[in-house]
Simulated assay, not measured.
Amino acid sequence: MGLFDYFKKKPEEVVPPAPAEKPAPEQPQSFFGKLRSALKKTNDILNTDIRDLFKREGRLVDDEFLGELFAALIKTDMGVAAANKLRDRVKVDFRGRVVHMNDILTAVKQELRGLLDQPGQAQEINFAASGPTIILVVGVNGSGKTTTIAKLCQRFKDQGKKVVLGAGDTFRAAAVEQLTIWADRLGAEIVKGDPGADPASVAHRAVAKAVELNADICIVDTAGRLQTQTNLMQQLEKIHRVMSKQIPESPHEVLLVLDGTAGQNAISQAQGFSTAAKCTGIMLTKLDGTAKGGVVVAIREKFAIPVKFIGLGEKSADLAEFKAPEFVEALFEDLA
C-alpha cells in the first residue's frame, strides 16, 4: 500500500501502531545471586585450577596432586594454615587412591564449612535487653568504614528502628561530611564534633542523644589511622570507657570493617584492632571487587571473631548477613 492509499482509508480502518511493550520490572537479586556475582573472580580461579587437576578422568592422590591442590587453594588468599587443613583432609581421606573431582570437592567443602562455622555465636547484632543498642565501628582508612555504617543504618531503618549516628572520626573532615550526607538521606539523627575534637566526646554525646531520643540503635564511627599507632589504640580504649559510664554494658557490639581487597593485610588489621577495641564481629567489604574472597576463611581460621556481615556491592542494600553454607557453595559453584 502506498502512502497516498493509506491516507484515503476511512478513519476506522486506520490501525494505530501497537504500543511498545514495557520491559518487565527487574527482579531483586537473591542473596545467593549477589554472593555468586561477588565471588565470581575467586570462583573462576578455583574452576580453572581444580579442573586442571582432573584433565583426565581419574587422578591418583599423591604428593604431586596434593601440592597442586594446595597451590590452587592458596590463590584464593585463604592463607597457608587453612589451605594446609583442606589439603590434609584430602590426604587422610584419599591418599593412594584414584579419585574423581566430585570426591575431592565433597571433602574440601565439608572441611571448609567446618572452618567457617561459628557455633554459639550470633550472626546478627547482639541487641541490648533495654534501651539503645550501642555499636562501635572500627577499621583503617579506606576500608569502606563510613559507607558500611550507612549500609548498616539502612538495614536497621528498614527494620523500623530509630538510629542515631556518631561521627567520631573527627581527624578526617571528609569522613564527618560523608556520614552527615548519609544521615540526611536515611533520616537518621547525627552527632558531630569540630574538626580535631576529642572522638570520645563525640561518642559520649552520641550515646546521650540516643538515650534522650529513646533510639533503638546508636552507631559510632571512629578514627581509622593505621593499627600500628599506639595513640589510636588508646583512643579506642577511652571511647569504651566513656560509653560504659553511661550504659554499663556498652558498647554492645564492636564491629571491625575489613577491606576484602586487602588480602592477607586484612589479617594484620584484624590482629591490631581486635586487641585494643575488643571486637565482637567483622564486616568484610568490597568482596565484589576482589579475586581473593578466600580471605574470609583466613580470618575465621585465625580469630575467634565471627564474620557478621559482608559487602556485596555499592548499594545500601548490598550489606548481607554472612552465611557459611552459601559462601562455600558460591566459591565452588559450577565445579560439581
Rank of each mutant, 00 (worst) to 15 (best):
G2A: 12
L3Q: 04
D5V: 12
Y6V: 13
K9C: 04
E12L: 12
P23C: 01
A24E: 07
E26L: 11
E26T: 13
F31D: 14
A38C: 01
K40R: 15
T42Q: 10
N43W: 03
R51G: 07
D52V: 10
D52A: 15
F54Q: 05
K55I: 05
R56S: 13
E57W: 07
E57N: 14
E64D: 15
E64K: 11
G67M: 07
F70D: 11
L73V: 12
L73Q: 07
K75E: 00
K85W: 02
R89W: 02
D93M: 05
D93Y: 00
V99D: 04
V108N: 03
E111F: 09
I125R: 01
S143T: 15
T148I: 11
L152Q: 11
F156K: 04
G160D: 10
G166Y: 04
V176C: 03
T180S: 14
I181W: 01
W182I: 09
D184A: 14
L186Q: 13
A188K: 08
K192V: 08
G193Q: 03
A200E: 04
V211K: 15
E212C: 02
N214Q: 14
R225K: 13
Q227M: 00
L232R: 06
I247F: 00
P251R: 09
A266S: 12
S268M: 11
K278L: 02
K278N: 07
C279N: 02
A304T: 12
P306K: 01
E314A: 10
A317N: 12
V328Q: 09
V328G: 11
F332I: 14
